[in-house]
Design a protein around this nucleic acid. Structure first.
Lengths: 188, 188
DNA sequence: GATTCGATCGGAGGGATAGTTA
DNA sequence: TCTAACTATCCCTCCGATCGAA
């Protein structure tokens, strides 16, 4: 135990933070200074549990058969709409944020067949690819962005009209019918 | 001047934070507790030695007189922490987004006393107000933004340090103790 | 010509820091 | 004069419409 001398205002400040009858100065100070306890568990690593959808595109040949096309829907019961969070969408600052969110949903719903989007491209720019470099190399200022939680990248330097077109093509490639495609493009 | 008795480990902690030869305990403690060097925070009307939530009403037309003291904490069981969504926070692009989200949480937890933040201000700019115009008029390029889901506006044209300061002052005005204030400012 | 595509460039937002004031 | 506090300019990044190119 030690005695220290402090100014009145400090003293009052400490007293005013008493949280239990008879609490002593040390206890109050520890709380105010964030000391004591058995440390604080900074960030719970609860994160690591859910992650790891990772997904490896796998290079099976899709073109081979119709059967394949069906089987593609490994998540057959899943549709993008199960992965769209309207709140989150609404919160985005601009079209790019929404664009990425929608694509991320498409990827989550169809991780294995997603690679077909890779075929969607412009006159000379690639629109989708597995790496930033590929997109960057296909044009100037393409502004590649990674589709969240996926191994794919998209070109981002385009007007909104074109972004909608990309969504339309992507959804169509993944087997959505016209009315669903329409709903998807309207999300942007 | 007052004398207080503290544990050895606390004593050492304080001593080890000495920053100049001959610095006294009060000075060190003020620094550690983020208290202003002299006088107290601008806004907090220094209480006497009373404990507990302190806080004072300002012009409130509460119908029941007794309610006044207690009623401050209309959402007494509510703390900002119940209104903070870490996910949402993490998603923000920059400090401004987080800043607004944290303030919105503070407002939701304390809608009736929130008006005290209105007293927080700089040399000539207002930091909080009930209208965009007020803030805009108090300086140039103040970039006022409305605190989501609230009738209040904040100035936004400041560096991150100052935004943290604003949060600190706001939380303090609303009766949070230092350790909570610290947690809040760390959210930014 | 008509149409599709590319990427430049103006605009908005954010916030560090230079500059100002008390 | 010197310093601490505060302001708001200004640079940077992100967006995406627009207009030139194919």
């Amino acid at each position: 135990m030690k005695n220290i001398e402090i100014d009145d205002d400090l003293y009052h400040h400490i007293v005013s933070n008493t949280q239990s009858i008879g609490e002593n100065a040390s206890s109050i100070l520890r709380r105010l200074l964030n000391l004591d306890e058995k440390a604080h568990q900074t960030i719970s690593l609860s994160e690591s549990a859910d992650k790891e959808p990772k997904e490896e595109p796998l290079d099976d040949e899709i073109t081979t058969s119709e059967a394949n096309a069906i089987e593609e829907f490994d998540n057959s019961s899943e549709s993008v709409f199960n992965f769209i969070n309207k709140e989150e969408l609404a919160m985005q600052r601009g079209a790019v944020g929404r664009f990425l969110l929608i694509l991320a949903a498409l990827y989550r719903a169809h991780p294995r067949q997603f690679k077909v989007v890779t075929e969607i491209c412009g006159r000379d720019r690639l629109y989708f690819a597995n790496s930033e470099a590929e997109l960057a190399a296909s044009g100037s200022s393409t502004k590649p962005k990674q589709i969240p939680e996926s191994p794919f990248w998209v070109l981002t330097n385009s007007n909104t009209t074109r972004k909608k077109m990309m969504l339309t093509k992507a959804a169509t490639s993944l087997g959505y019918n016209h009315s669903d495609v329409e709903k998807i493009r309207e999300l942007l």
